[in-house]
Simulated scan of single mutants.
Amino acid sequence: MQKLTKPFIDVFVVTWDFVLFILNLILPAHKPGSVIPAGAPGNNGQWPDYVAPQEGDSRSACPMLNALANHGILPHNGKNIRFRDLNTTVRQTFNFAPSFCFFVPKFAADFLHRSYWNDRFDLADLSKHNAIEHDASLTRKDSALVSDQSKPDLELVQELLKGATGTSSDGHVLLTKRDLSLALSRRRADARMSNAAYSESLFHNMFGSANSSTMLTIFGGRVSDLEPMLTEERFASNWEPRILSRYGLTMAAFNKTVLPVEYGVNVKKFK
């Protein structure tokens, strides 16, 4: 049944996403400070207390999802989460478009062979290799080398952040598209040499560039915001999404960042 309905769902999501993309061009954006809705965690920069994961807690290879659990926005133990609840939580917290927030949890439910509408998951389930988790991550060593994908590799994170070359008008150090392309080039070259089980495909490369590009979109490339997120998986004080669009970051708009980042990757430079 899933195979029969998937093409129709995909067409619906793409159409829905494009409509939201157009509406974002027409409707006024949120004002800074009011992106997260009233009553939701993080409104006015007020985040629930951060509590590091404890023994037995479930965490994924995704820093942003782990941060939601570390702040208690998702269950702190990271377990028994409804796919549909993840949709709402990610939408409110990060200002991804509703189409985006449906597509990704639905994709996760599908690769776990579960129902998006009825089933639940633990964060660690999302670290299934070559689904969302992939080789040559910018924040994790490959799963063939380090089986626990729940914790960041601080050496990789610091190397990434030290490569930031941009500066905002108000003096913030920024990661740029070029910085990200360079980091992905270096990381893929290193992973190919150090991991005998390394695997790569166009899908995984695009997914890797998309995961990484959230640093440029949702976080605006700001190193001061990215450092606590990537090292401790914690929201910086008074942080809010840098995407101000009325209906959030659509997949159509996101591609304007993802495609140049992936196009700029050149592994041969590091061979």
Rank of each mutant, 00 (worst) to 15 (best):
R222E: 10
E55C: 12
A131Y: 13
Y50N: 00
L23P: 08
T165R: 04
Q46Y: 13
T250L: 01
N211D: 13
L175P: 02
V146D: 06
L259K: 14
A67P: 06
S194L: 08
G33M: 07
R246M: 06
Y50I: 04
N211A: 13
F203I: 09
G264V: 04
A124H: 09
H76C: 08
F12K: 06
L23M: 05
R120C: 03
L112A: 01
G72Q: 08
L161T: 03
I132N: 14
E155I: 10
S212Q: 07
Q158R: 11
P37A: 03
N118Q: 15
P7G: 03
A108R: 07
K268V: 10
T139G: 08
T88W: 14
H172T: 10
N24K: 06
N77C: 06
G42V: 05
Y198D: 05
A191Y: 09
V261S: 06
K151P: 06
L230A: 00
L86A: 00
N255P: 13
T214Y: 15
N211P: 12
K106H: 15
S58G: 05
L126F: 07
L230E: 02
R242S: 08
K256R: 13
D148P: 00
R82G: 11
H76Q: 12
A69R: 01
G33Y: 09
A52K: 04
F102T: 04
S168P: 00
R84S: 15
H134Q: 12
N205C: 15
Y50F: 02
A183G: 04
N255A: 15
L230Y: 01
D142C: 05
I9R: 05
V258W: 14
N205D: 12
I9P: 07
T167P: 07
S194G: 09
L112E: 01
A210S: 12
L184Y: 00
D85Q: 14
Q2Y: 15
Q149D: 01
F121C: 04
V51K: 10
L174K: 00
R84V: 15
S150R: 01
D110C: 04
L160D: 04
E227R: 09
P105F: 02
L74K: 01
L174R: 01
A52H: 00
L259G: 11
T15A: 15
